[in-house]
């Protein structure tokens, strides 16, 4: 049984089929890419997996349990975390507080114990602040822990978004164009980081990316979407030489 499984998923907005008959599996420790031209439905596939949209048809299962149409926060708590195509940090909050929000589901204290500063509040706040700092150290962001998240350079913001997602202890991590807006050096570092995260945190990573070099280098498997439909699945070498993929990206041969 795969950890994450999408079967015949369709997402329809009125008369528009954003995604149709989408099939996909992802296991722990896998690193899988999702590519396709603009408007192909890649982010829609992420949104339907994370509960932003309810599928019009089909099933989404996490470890065998159906999660289709559940609330976003419940799906996150079940083990799927994501980053966003346009970075969506809590811009006016500190870097440390951004990560602390990710630990929210791990907190067992009630709001009453928070207000009364009960022993459990002190223990947990201390413990998770330590963990948040450890996480920031791993992501090389610890020296900026008290800076406002919105003030970070773009590459750091992207890494912070990943750190925040990891704080929710996901089994599956969805990265929506993590390299967008990064320079070549940052992209090279990002590739290392993605592999490191996969190994260190034992997560399955599903990644949307337009940078073909990055996708082809790190992904073990790639799904190609065009006009909401899967046109190719396979290893980087296989999809690269697939005529349908070449046509989708470059147009029909003259």
């Amino acid at each position: 049984m795969p950890l994450l499984e999408l079967q015949n998923v369709c997402v329809q907005f009125g008369g528009l089929r954003a995604v149709s008959d989408f099939n996909f599996t992802l296991d722990q420790g896998e690193l899988v890419g999702l590519i396709g031209p603009n408007g192909a439905g890649k982010t829609t596939a992420f949104n339907v997996t994370t509960g932003v949209y309810r599928p019009s048809a089909g099933t989404v299962r996490l470890a065998g349990q159906s999660i289709a149409g559940q609330k976003t926060f419940k799906i996150n708590r079940a083990g799927i975390a994501r980053t966003f195509q346009n970075v969506r940090l809590f811009a006016n909050m500190s870097v440390l507080d951004n990560v602390l929000v990710g630990f929210n589901k791990s907190l067992t204290q009630s709001l009453t114990s928070t207000i009364l500063r009960a022993p459990i509040h002190q223990r947990e706040d201390r413990q998770f602040e330590d963990q948040a700092i450890e996480l920031l150290q791993t992501m090389n962001l610890a020296d900026k822990a008290y800076a406002a998240a919105g003030s970070l350079p773009y590459g750091d913001q992207r890494r912070l978004e990943i750190a925040r997602a990891l704080a929710t202890r996901p089994k599956i991590l969805l990265l929506d164009e993590p390299a967008a807006g990064m320079n070549p050096r940052e992209k090279a570092e990002l590739m290392q980081l993605i592999r490191f995260i996969r190994d260190q945190f034992q997560v399955g990573i599903w990644l949307i990316e337009h940078d073909m070099k990055l996708v082809m280098t790190i992904c073990e498997r790639i799904t190609v979407l065009d006009h909401g439909e899967i046109i190719a699945v396979g290893t980087p070498a296989k999809v690269q030489s697939d005529p349908a993929v070449i046509e989708a990206y470059l147009g029909e041969p003259a």
Binding site: V101, E129, T168
Partner: peptide, 19 residues
């Protein structure tokens, strides 16, 4: 730590739910 959720909702409700 727990109360950071309030401010997170102010900053970005969609991202807060996704976390």
């Amino acid at each position: 730590a727990k109360g950071k959720a309030f401010a997170a909702i102010r900053e970005d409700e969609v991202a807060a739910a996704a976390m």
